[in-house]
Design a protein around this nucleic acid. Structure first.
Ligand code: SF4
Ligand code: SF4
Lengths: 149, 149
DNA sequence: AAATTAAAAGACAAATTACTCTTAAATATT
DNA sequence: AATATTTAAGAGTAATTTGTCTTTTAATTT
């Protein structure tokens, strides 16, 4: 798997918030139900994202989470880094330490190419752009496609 | 992580055998020591590859494993499929079922592109080609670079 | 035939990832 | 002030991946 489940859930939640745009707080309960993600698990994941400054939260009635300024301008890459860390973009095809820093292997060139094609794709894709396209084209965020933007 | 550890170990072992080329059997003990992979774990992994017809094994003194005809002509893609299964090439960026078969999301196009760039890279890279280049250029198969072709 | 070598198979253990539950802290409403 | 709402934090459980150990099976050597 390219991305961990935590990461995928985090992305879905971030897209959810980006689509609602207006900087309102949305409760985790609401999000977990609409996105069909375990409430407590989602809580954990979004805690990471708020700790990382990509989201901000507010406690109490009508509280919830929303994208921070930083989060609103973020790309998929930023989200992936915040949750899965940089491993995907630094680690080596053969699991050897120090990719590229020592004598390379024949895989190196092709590997580094595809690795940065992943990286570039994630970097050029901003949350808000995706969310807008998502609303236009009615893409789904849930397995059953029941989620409406 | 793109590839599981099992998969990475399997690839290293396959490259090892491809580099030795002459269709001799190599014992798992020898390979596990040279490649610095746990003997028993490597055994399990290569059992999968022999079950899949990519390698063949021989018991008893001077026994071991070697690449089968099929394995000798295999690409990295074949190895990955045999160990990690097709998930990497079929699963979706957002973890939704049925990628592309239902209404797509805005991620779909970029996602499918990078996904097939991974796939193409693995498909165009044959084990034996890599092993030859590896010997020429003295690339490393182990963390410490001590392994010699 | 007996002993040795090496893979196959299966049970087991540790580590990581995925997920759940409970309690605490902050904010709002009454 | 008391109660309700909602996130934070932490402990605990389940599942998967990773790694180990033991026994069995096939082949060779003596
Ligand atoms: S050269 Fe190949 S083996 Fe060496 S670090 Fe880069 S990808 Fe890994
Ligand atoms: S369109 Fe997007 S969400 Fe839908 S299956 Fe393809 S990658 Fe996944």
């Amino acid at each position: 798997m390219l991305l961990s489940k935590s990461c995928v859930y985090g992305l879905r939640a971030a897209l959810y918030l980006a689509a609602k745009k207006n900087g309102e707080y949305h409760s985790l309960r609401e999000m977990s139900e609409e996105l069909e993600i375990s409430f407590h698990f989602l809580t954990k994941i979004l805690q990471q994202l708020t700790a990382d400054g990509l989201m901000e939260s507010y406690k109490g009635p009508n509280g919830g989470v929303r994208l921070s300024r930083k989060g609103g301008n973020a790309t998929l890459f930023d989200m992936v880094i915040a949750i899965d860390g940089p491993g995907l973009f630094t680690q080596c095809a053969l699991g050897l330490p120090g990719c590229g820093s020592q004598e390379p292997c024949p895989l190196h060139e092709s590997w580094v190419d595809t690795r940065s094609s992943i990286e570039n794709m994630l970097k050029k894709t901003s949350l808000t752009k995706i969310a807008e396209e998502g609303k236009e084209k009615h893409f789904r965020l849930t397995a059953d496609g029941q989620f409406s933007w």
